[in-house]
Amino acid sequence: MNRKIELQNVTLRFRKFEALKDISLSLDANKIHGLIGRNGAGKTSLLSLLAAFREPTDGQITIDGEPVFENPDKMQQVMFVYDKKYDEEYDKIPAMLEFVERHRPNYDKDYADYLLKRFKLPLDKSVHKLSKGMQSAMNAVIGLASRAPITIFDEAYLGMDAPTREIFYQEILADQAEHPRTFILSTHLVSEMDYLFDNVVIINQGRLILNEDYETLTARGASITGSAEQVDAFTSGMKILNEQKLGGTKKVMVYGVLDDNRYVNARELGLEIGPVSLQDLFIHLTEEER
């Protein structure tokens, strides 16, 4: 089974407000997909549809050709981890994990124990007493250890400190290498997570902006580094996304594909050309929509 996710003309409406507008896209199996969008872009709405938390107003969502909603086999394959309120959760972490274990056939207890140690999570405290960052880390453990074929993390890092987030990202990559599955990571911390993504989906104001693999996407622009004057001369007339200057050196992010002539030209001038950052592309692409 390849567990391909497909959305066909998916629209989600709340009364008059359209949270998602006619979205069609397909996500390949066993890849890490980054879902990025600004606040209120519709990321969580989209993911809650994938996880059958709600039904689309129009359109269809399928996994391997079968609709997800109320489909026991498909729902069991999808694990949706989101920023859940645990204010009333008097259980302790082991009890929470036991429940996950009962319902997730691929759950790996040893892996969960390893992760609990890695995140230094206390097992003898009620979950509502844990700090926000610890609750998020527990969510990360639930999602990772479930080994669900489709694991969705919706801004699961909220409240985690930087070292904890780093552990989280490392574990996603490490586990993906050993137990390939489909990850969907929604985020607006683009610069921090971009190296994780095989594929990037950008949505803005409920619309799909793009769904491309990371390499293709970052080839849509370039970063040009060199002496300030030469960089300015080289990039004049190009769409500039971002500029940084340090002494006489300047780094400019441009949007648009560079042809071979430009590459040769740049090399002759001694300019360094690299990929554009996803963060700058993201800002640019979601600004243009306004």
Binding site: A51, A52, E70, N71, M75, Q76, M79, V100, H103, A148
Partner: peptide, 12 residues
Amino acid sequence: TYHVQQGVTRKD
């Protein structure tokens, strides 16, 4: 809520 999050259908 808890059951649907763990992939149990509303019917079940």
